[in-house]
Design a protein around this nucleic acid. Structure first.
Length: 877
DNA sequence: CAGCGGTCG
DNA sequence: ATGGTCGACCGCTGT
């Protein structure tokens, strides 16, 4: 297999046509400076780069149809007749596609009187010479070429979009249609081809044709035995259309001996013609491709010899005098992500005139730090480990970029791609990936660090301008930056976790797991891996023949809702559910958390501040925002989290913050009233939606239904989803939702207005101007568009709630400092804060936290905070 | 590395 | 008719 030649054959005509329609909806966005439409050119390029990267071919040929008339039209005048005229916007792009192919270092070819298919078939045949050993991949939009699949040839049919292909091999053909390669043409002979406009046999479509071939094996054999068919309309049609069937077969058959004037050697994949390609991209207005090409990287698929622009820097060590200007940028480098553990491997600072780099950590203990950085929180934690307190900066490029757009990551190389004049190689490219990751030679390493500084310096103004245009500057300077300082403090503090407690739980779990395993094997009658959904599916739904519900892409679903329906009738299922519960706690929370306890007996999570689409935080290594609470089984884990000496844990959480935010944003009078009067919101909704007069007449079931509706609304839930979740009739669910909107009309208006606004502007905003872009909101794909609409409804609600807690944390941090308290914030879990409170401060702190959180912002409804204390996190809930 | 499953708000 | 609830992280399996 190794060193094999790989030939990629592309049906250029059909792929270009696909590309044209894939991006047709955005045709007005794809216009070159000259006015030429470029959607097909652009899409073709995308498909091409995708294929080249994935398949790594050594030889490539892109074949095109030569013109309207071919040998096939001579045989059958109507061949490809009746087709709609190709759109002018498409035809005008074809010459440019061919030009682009040449500049990319690839070959295209067309031949008078023959179709692209025939060129491809002929080359495919040439590549079959035994000792040349080619792997051939054919890419097309047209199923006809499937007739070429064999052990060396795969045919990929382009599906939706520009990146999706369906691979056909002899095995796939057998599996999907029950046909051999040779039978494929007979299929076309019988069923004809609508788009090529040859009819095959009257009234015979794919289904009938397949049945006939499965029975008779081939067209020839079918016609040899046609008389023995029992009398039917189909028999008459077969006999009457015999000639047309054979003509169709001829038309469908690809000519693999076309008189082409090129050979395999002409298709060798050369390097791109860089300068010409750049010029071409400029003409087309392809900024992204241009940037990608300029990105001087090993990964660059065109050419790895792109010149990097020079970078100047000075290497500094402890003996040197250290010069830092206030408005310099600085940047600390570590290998890996976990700045609580990893060492600083280098750092840099500077401005547009002068950049300094160093590896000497003693420099860090002496230098003053400037006011601009990238990822303040990381720098604060790293320097804290060196015993230095990094003063708060005034600008953080990572946070600025995150606020501007959450669609991409916020790496410096990404910032460069979007905002700088020149791209920056990614860390993976410079340092290597996985086991190969290593510190490069000093000159390479320092140059990379210096380039990072150069990008940060160059892009600051653009980022600031962007924020200012969006009215997001306060979000950076008054929210994310001060928050970064608070989060750093929390991460550094960590939360004490008792390994013994986890081990005790672990030992218990192990015993239960082995007992459960034995019982499950007994009930199954054999041993298998209970953790494998695949093996489990076979046991439950094949061996034990339990009724299977939904299926997944890879087999039967064994998800909890499926199993719960079976638990009552099948004892093994109940045991499996119990096993799953224990196994989850054991692997993720016992075995997962123990190694995360640091030498100081604490767990130091990292809050990722620049990730979520809505503005929430996330927590990693470990995630302390999903410690079990719902089921007692897992909730025990919380017993391992304890306060420091002479202190307690205080947990303060906002009650119903998202619904309160919804009430405020939507300005719905009924919802506002309910919260103002401090009614139980689910009971209140039950009364309004179900028309119940007195609160005491609301049954637990009514309240449960109302609660489901309340939550579902802010997610944009449909009647189908609500019905499934509540186990009720879909019609009834519809009634609930309609009644809800009737009783809370402004909520209905909010949803409608938000979606309209999103369509209009392409993004939605929180109360504090945090944005979420929604590029899919105008998608023509029903599912994608609906998904974006639900995100549009939810993001301002979830995001505003997140913003409010961030404000509360900042204010609380200030209040704790001002009051000189020893109390420490430890954790944040989306709507709650967990604090370590010395007993002596408890009363005062409880009041302070509550008021700070409740007064974080003034809404049309009051914010309400509930508190719990305990000697473990388990008790403080 | 993707897919499944499960944990949280 | 379609598919049908938002936002996250992590462990295990199987290729």
């Amino acid at each position: 297999m190794e060193n094999k030649n790989r030939l990629l054959l592309i049906d250029g005509s059909s792929v270009a046509f696909r590309a044209f329609f894939a991006l047709y909806h955005q045709i007005d966005r794809f216009v070159a400076p000259s006015g030429l439409h470029t959607n097909a050119i652009y899409g073709f390029h995308l498909m091409l780069t995708n294929l080249l990267e994935r398949l790594q071919p050594t030889h490539v040929l892109i074949a095109f149809d030569a013109g309207k008339t071919t040998f096939r039209t001579e045989m059958f005048a109507d061949y490809k007749g009746g087709r709609a005229k190709t759109p002018d916007e498409f035809r005008e792009q074809l010459p440019f596609i061919k030009e682009m192919i040449e500049k990319l270092g690839l070959t295209h070819y067309e031949l008078a009187n023959y179709e692209a298919d025939d060129i491809i078939g002929t080359l495919d045949k040439l590549a079959e010479v035994p000792d040349v050993a080619f792997d051939v991949t054919i890419v097309t939009g047209d199923k006809d070429l499937i007739q070429l699949v064999d052990s060396n040839t795969t045919v990929e049919i382009s599906k939706k979009g520009v990146g999706e292909f369906e691979a056909w091999t002899p095995e796939v053909l057998q599996e999907k249609m029950g046909l051999s390669t040779a039978q494929f043409v007979d299929l076309k002979a019988l069923m004809g081809d609508n788009s090529d406009n040859y009819p095959g046999v009257t009234k015979v479509g794919e289904k009938t044709a397949l049945n006939l071939l499965h029975e008779w094996g081939s067209l020839d054999n079918l016609y040899e035995n046609v008389d023995s068919l029992k009398k039917s309309k189909m028999k008459e049609n077969l006999i009457a259309d015999r000639e047309m069937a054979y003509l169709s077969k001829t038309l469908a058959t690809i000519n693999v001996t076309s008189p082409i004037e090129i050979g395999l050697d002409d298709t060798i994949y050369h390097d791109a013609k860089q300068d010409e390609l750049l010029k071409f991209y400029d003409e087309m207005g392809f900024v992204q491709f241009r940037a990608k090409l300029l990105e001087n990287s090993a990964e660059n698929i065109f050419d790895s010899s792109v010149k990097k622009s020079e970078i100047e820097f000075e290497v500094v060590s402890a003996e040197n005098e250290i010069s830092v200007k206030k408005d310099d940028f600085f940047y600390l480098e570590i290998f890996g992500e976990n700045y609580h553990k990893e060492e600083i491997v280098g750092f840099a600072w500077g401005n547009a005139d002068k950049i300094f780099v160093s590896k000497d950590l003693t420099v860090l203990s002496k230098m003053d730090f400037p006011e601009n950085t990238y990822d303040f929180k990381k720098n604060r934690v790293l320097l804290n480990r060196l015993g230095r307190e990094l003063p708060l900066v005034s600008f953080d490029s990572m946070l600025a970029k995150y606020l501007l757009s959450t669609t991409e990551d916020n790496k410096i190389s990404t910032i460069a791609r979007l905002f700088a004049s020149e791209n920056l190689a990614s860390d993976d490219e410079v340092y290597g990936k996985g086991v190969k990751r290593a510190l490069p030679e000093d000159d390479v390493f320092f140059a990379h660090l210096a380039r990072k500084i150069r990008v940060l310096v160059e892009t600051k103004e653009k980022l600031l301008t962007g924020l200012s245009e969006n009215e997001q500057l306060p979000l950076l300077t008054e929210m994310e930056l001060p928050l970064a300082e608070v989060l750093a403090k929390m991460e550094i503090a960590g939360i004490s976790a008792k390994q013994e407690t986890l081990e005790e739980i672990g030992a218990e779990n192990e015993e239960r797991l082995s007992a459960l395993t034995a019982e499950i094997y007994e009930l199954a009658g054999e041993e298998f891996n209970i953790n494998s959904p695949k093996q489990l599916g076979v046991i439950l739904f094949e061996k034990l023949e339990l009724p299977h519900g939904k299926k997944t892409k890879t087999g039967y679903s064994t998800a909890v809702d499926v199993l719960e329906n079976l638990a009552a009738t099948a004892p093994i299922v109940a045991k499996i559910l119990e096993y799953r519960q224990v196994a989850k706690v054991q692997s993720t929370y016992v075995q997962g958390l123990i190694p995360e306890i640091a030498a100081d007996g604490k767990i130091h999570t990292r809050y990722v501040q620049d990730l979520t689409q809505t503005g929430r935080l996330s927590s990693v290594a470990p995630n302390l925002q999903n410690i079990p609470v719902r089921l007692e089984e897992g909730r025990k884990i919380r017993k391992a989290f304890v306060p420091s000496a002479d202190s307690v844990l205080l947990s303060s959480d906002y009650s119903q913050i998202e619904l309160r935010v919804l009430a405020h944003i939507a300005q719905d009078p009924n919802l506002i009233e309910a919260f103002k009067e401090d009614q139980d919101i689910h009971t209140s909704t039950a009364m309004r939606v179900f028309g119940i007069e007195k609160a005491e007449d609301v049954t637990p079931n009514d309240r449960r239904n109302a609660k489901a509706v309340n939550f579902g609304i802010s997610y944009g839930e449909t009647d189908f989803g609500l019905a499934r979740r509540l186990g009720i009739d879909r019609k009834e669910a519809r009634k609930f939702i309609d009644m809800y909107f009737d009783r809370y009309p402004e909520v209905a208006n909010y949803i409608e207005a938000t979606i309209r606004d999103a369509r209009d502007k392409g993004f939605v905003s929180t109360m504090f101007n945090r944005r979420r872009k929604l590029p899919e909101i105008n998608s023509r794909n029903f599912n994608i568009r609906n998904g974006a609409e639900r995100q549009a409804i939810n993001a301002p609600i979830q995001g505003s709630a997140g913003d409010i807690l961030k404000i509360a944390m900042i204010n609380l941090n200030r209040a704790l400092l001002a009051g000189n308290f020893q109390t420490k914030m430890l954790l944040q879990v989306h709507d709650e804060i967990i604090l370590d409170v010395p007993n002596a401060e408890l009363d005062e702190i409880k009041a302070l936290v509550k008021s700070t959180m409740e007064d974080a912002v003034e809404l049309s409804v009051p914010l309400k905070v509930e508190e719990n204390t305990g000697m473990t996190w388990y008790e403080a809930k």
